[in-house]
């Protein structure tokens, strides 16, 4: 068993309205050092395999097909033994 820990976030040049609003709110709460917030999703996908290479291929495919909207989002993941 392996777990893919996947982060999906908006691509760098894509506007992140949530992030912008939260940045302002943190600033107004006195956290002046906050320059930028980017908001994304974190997912854990449990995969029934021990082959790291296959898992990597499959998770990449899952991200491309469903988990990330690659038109505006990017993804990264790490695989850990469950």
């Amino acid at each position: 068993m392996m777990i893919a820990k996947i982060h999906v976030t908006l691509k760098g040049s894509v506007l992140d309205p949530q992030g912008t609003t939260i940045t302002k709110s943190l600033n107004s709460l006195g956290y002046d050092e906050v320059r930028d917030v980017r908001i994304g999703k974190y997912m854990e996908v449990k995969i029934d395999t021990t082959d790291r290479k296959i898992a990597e291929e499959r998770v990449t495919e899952m991200c491309e097909k469903l988990l990330a909207n690659t038109v505006i989002e990017k993804y990264e993941f790490e695989l850990v033994e469950a």
Binding site: K11, V14, L15, P17, V71, I72
Partner: peptide
């Protein structure tokens, strides 16, 4: 080029 997609911010 896909960066031509814009994201809307209705709150803004």
């Amino acid at each position: 080029e896909r960066s031509a997609v814009q994201v809307g911010d209705p709150f803004m």
